[in-house]
């Protein structure tokens, strides 16, 4: 552990500092958006969005290299693909709920397939691994600014719409009766999720973005009494998982993304056990205690 802290301070290892900072900064977005994803139960939609991102990245790279569109950075493709997936799945969820599952599966698999196809046809060797599993150690200074910008956007929207998102997530029908444009808020939430996913794909990769989005929030949700408390706790927990994961991966020479995810997963299991133990064993079961 001391070795890791020492390395953080080492002027010759800026990449480690950037990685650490990227992890901390992105925890803000993960905590807020992840809490909404968990309470609204849209983790599968988030998963489909994150896998569609590969399609956008593939297309973006292909256009940039093979078609010679120099301006077309893969991140534009990633954002476009994520937003298309978010809106399409959102609309199906709103108007044809029974088809939601199928559409989620379709975007998930087809998005990946499209991405891999385009990557295969792009001249030069492109390794999809760093997109799939992330490489936080490749984070650059400009990436950090992007993450910061995302954080500002996410916090601003979450604060501005807090009461309305809370109402829509808790009781959509009642919100509709009160006159809220429930469809718009739902789609806005999905688009926010899409942006968060895109910018954080670099940290742990497409396959595991959904884990950092849901696990810290899920742990927080076991103990939090109010949504903003859950968000705050999810942020802090995410920072903790990233820090511990990075330290472990550095000292034991393990890939960083998967290590972070394992730390998060282990913490979730521990939290579940803790929550179960705290539900005082001597107390009468709910059905009997349910009274006036």
């Amino acid at each position: 552990m001391l070795e890791f802290l020492g390395a953080l301070g080492n002027a010759d290892l800026p990449f480690l500092r950037y990685a650490f900072l990227a992890g901390l900064l992105s925890s803000v977005a993960f905590g807020i958006v992840g809490s909404y994803v968990v309470v609204r139960r849209i983790s599968y939609i988030a998963g489909a969005i994150s896998h569609s991102v590969l399609g956008g990245i593939g297309l973006g790279l292909y256009l940039q290299v093979a078609a010679g569109w120099g301006w077309c950075h893969p991140i534009y493709g990633a954002v476009a693909a994520a937003l298309v997936a978010a809106v399409a799945i959102g609309l199906v969820s709103l108007h044809a709920r029974q088809r939601e599952d199928t559409v989620i599966g379709a975007f998930w698999a087809v998005g990946m397939a499209v991405g891999l196809l385009f990557l295969a046809r792009t001249p030069g060797y492109i390794d999809p691994m760093s997109y799939l599993f992330g490489n936080i150690l490749l984070i650059s200074r400009s990436d950090l600014w992007l993450v910061l910008a995302l954080d500002v956007l996410v916090v601003a929207i979450a604060l501005a719409f807090y009461n309305r998102f809370l109402a829509v997530c808790f009781d959509e029908e009642f919100a509709r009766v009160r006159g809220l444009r429930v469809e718009l808020y739902f789609l806005l939430l999905l688009c926010l999720t899409a942006l968060t996913v895109v910018l954080l794909v670099r940290v742990v990769g497409i396959v595991m973005v959904i884990a950092l989005l849901t696990l810290p929030a899920a742990v927080a949700g076991l103990f939090a009494r109010r949504l903003w408390q859950m968000m705050l706790a999810a942020m802090l927990l995410c920072m903790l998982f990233v820090a511990v994961g990075l330290a472990l991966s550095y000292t034991r020479d393990l890939p960083s993304g998967p290590t972070i995810i394992l730390v998060a997963g282990a913490a979730y299991l521990l939290a579940l056990l803790l929550a179960r133990l705290l539900r005082r064993p001597g107390r009468a079961p709910r059905a009997i205690a349910d009274g006036r």
Binding site: V39, N163, L166, A167, F170, R178, G179, R226, Q229
Partner: peptide, 15 residues
């Protein structure tokens, strides 16, 4: 994760 007061306040929302 919502309190009783927060639920009731939802009745004050409108378009």
């Amino acid at each position: 994760p919502v309190t009783v007061l927060e639920v009731v306040l939802m009745g004050r929302l409108d378009s």
